[in-house]
Design a protein around this nucleic acid. Structure first.
Lengths: 158, 158
DNA sequence: GTTGAAAACGCGCCAGA
DNA sequence: TCTGGCGCGTTTTCAAC
């Protein structure tokens, strides 16, 4: 069980993060191998956690969630126990799809996907601003999105 | 072909955006139905574009891409043709996983996934700052990420 | 919508190299 | 570790209700 990925592994990962419904056979053909080793490698990649899960990617806008917003937050109190509580609360909001602790001009950066401006305001008023020790809050509303993927660049790690 | 989604559709979408390897049978059982209608609905959701694709979600850090960075960018020139060229260039960088045109203190917000601080600096120096008309550039480096998903909140659109 | 069943497909196993 | 092939299970399709 080597701890590192070879070229074939990264090629498999690259294919699966583009389309996880590809059959082992079609992957095998593309990589010039047979199904068995490809199958074994995929299972290994899953078992060792390189592949976390398989998901369907939905069309947010078509479904009715038309607005993406990023919110930069500065906190006034920084006690450890409070930070944990703050993060826990934030993570429980279903509108919040990402929560990062960041360095720079903010303490936290959130990414939200909501229906519209109203839903965004509702979130701010009924959820976010109820949290204590909130300092500066700055929103960046996505007017348009030219790229949005979670396909990461595996060529960098080859 | 109704233009809107009913409760069963959203339940199916919710299941699939959590785990796309669920069989139609297990979904049918969970929702108290038989496989056939579930199968038909899934195909319809795919065909009509509610489901865009199926992908494997990888463990960035385990694979060696340990750093997530958000970059806010202000441009100095705003001619339409330049904006299009700028976006096109940005979208071609494999490190960039998201590019949003935003309102607020920046014109664009990028999300990058790279190996480490060095790779980030390399990106800034050899790619980003070569683009003309670049104004203010501000980076937010993710120190830790407590939530990162693209599972959107379907309860809002029910 | 449901049921049931048949066909096609891909998975997973195994022996062999 | 890869090859190739076979059997099992599932998916998918297609009847009829």
């Amino acid at each position: 069980m080597s701890n590192t990925l070879d070229k074939i592994d990264t090629q498999i990962l690259d294919i699966l993060q583009t389309d996880s419904n590809r059959t082992t056979k079609s992957i095998a053909t593309e990589l010039g191998m047979t199904t068995s080793p490809i199958f074994e490698r995929i299972k290994k990649l899953e078992k060792e956690g390189y592949i976390k899960k398989y998901v369907a990617v939905l069309d947010n806008k078509k479904i009715g969630l038309k607005l993406t917003v990023f919110i930069g937050i500065t906190l006034q109190g920084h006690t450890r126990s409070y930070l944990e509580k703050f993060v826990k609360e934030i993570n429980n909001f279903p509108e919040v799809v990402e929560c990062h602790r960041v360095s720079g001009n903010f303490d936290y950066l959130l990414k939200l996907v909501v229906e519209d401006i109203e839903a965004y305001e509702t979130f701010i008023i009924t959820k976010l601003t109820l949290l204590p020790y909130l300092g500066n809050v700055q929103s960046l509303i996505a007017l348009s999105t030219s790229k949005e993927t979670n396909k990461i660049d595996l060529s960098a790690v080859l």
